[in-house]
C-alpha cells in the first residue's frame, strides 16, 4: 500500500541495523576464537568484516534518525527508538574496539585460559543475540520483550561469572608477571564489557516496552 511506502523503508533499515548487530556479535565470537587458535589471517578478515558492519550500523542509525525527524514519525516513541539504536550501535562499536586492541596489542594468552576466553566470547554473543531478539520484539510485539530480557540478564551474568573466574585464576598464577596479568585482565574486561553494554540496552528496552503498551 502506498501509505506504508515510507514506513516500509524505515522498517527495512531498522531490520538491517539489527541484522548488522547480530552478525557483528557472531563475527566477534569467531574472531576471538580465531585469535586464540593463532589463525591471524582469519582474525584479520573477521576484524575487517566487523569494521564494515560497524560502519553500516552507524549509517543506518543516522538514516533512521533523519527519517524519523524529517517525517515526524512515531512522535511518542521517537526518542526511545533513537536511544535504542544509538546504544545498540555502541555495542558493536565496543566489540570492534576490543578486536582492534587484540590486533594492535597482541596479548599472549596462555593455553590453559583459552577455553575461558572462548566461553566468555560465547556468553557475550548469546547476550547480544538475546538483546537483538528483544529489540525486534519491541518493534512488533512489546508484550513479549521481557521473555528475551530474561535471557540477556542470564548470559550477562554468565559472562560476569566467567570473567571473574578468569581474573581470579590469572592473578593466582605465580608464574606470570604483574604486567602480563594486568594485560590479560584488560582483555577479559574488554570482552565482558560488551555484555555489560548489551545489558544496558536491555534495561532501557524494559522501560521502552512498558511505555509502548497501551
Amino acid at each position: 500500500m502506498p501509505i506504508f511506502r515510507t514506513t516500509r523503508e524505515i522498517e527495512r533499515q531498522i531490520d538491517e541495523f539489527l541484522d548488522a548487530l547480530s552478525k557483528g556479535a557472531l563475527v566477534f565470537r569467531d574472531a576471538v576464537a580465531a585469535y586464540l587458535a593463532g589463525n591471524g589471517t582469519d582474525f584479520a578478515q573477521k576484524l575487517r568484516i566487523l569494521e564494515e558492519l560497524e560502519t553500516r550500523a552507524d549509517r543506518l542509525s543516522r538514516d533512521v534518525e533523519s527519517s524519523l525527524y524529517s517525517q515526524s514519525l512515531i512522535p511518542e516513541h521517537r526518542g526511545d527508538v533513537l536511544a535504542l539504536l544509538e546504544h545498540s550501535d555502541d555495542i558493536i562499536d565496543r566489540a570492534k574496539n576490543c578486536l582492534q586492541r587484540f590486533d594492535v596489542e597482541r596479548p599472549v594468552i596462555p593455553q590453559q585460559w583459552h577455553d575461558h576466553y572462548r566461553r566468555l566470547a560465547e556468553a557475550v554473543f548469546r547476550c547480544v543475540e538475546a538483546v537483538v531478539m528483544a529489540s525486534r520484539r519491541f518493534f512488533r510485539e512489546a508484550e513479549s520483550v521481557s521473555d528475551f530480557l530474561y535471557q540477556v540478564h542470564h548470559y550477562e551474568g554468565e559472562a560476569d561469572q566467567i570473567g571473574l573466574e578468569l581474573r581470579r585464576q590469572i592473578f593466582a598464577d605465580p608464574d606470570l608477571e604483574l604486567g602480563h596479568r594486568q594485560h590479560l585482565r584488560y582483555f577479559a574486561d574488554g570482552i565482558d564489557r560488551v555484555a555489560d553494554m548489551a545489558e544496558d540496552v536491555a534495561d532501557r528496552l524494559a522501560i521502552y516496552s512498558l511505555k509502548r503498551r497501551l
Binding site: I3, F4, T7, I14, L73, I74, H77, R140, R212, L214
Partner: peptide, 25 residues
C-alpha cells in the same frame, strides 16, 4: 473501542512504524 483496538494491536503484531502510519491515517 479501546478494548477492541487493544486486542487488534496485540494480535496484529504490527511493526511500531506501521502501527504509527495506520493510527495517523
Amino acid at each position: 473501542l479501546y478494548i477492541v483496538m487493544r486486542q487488534i494491536l496485540r494480535r496484529g503484531h504490527l511493526h511500531l512504524l506501521r502501527q504509527d502510519a495506520l493510527v495517523r491515517w
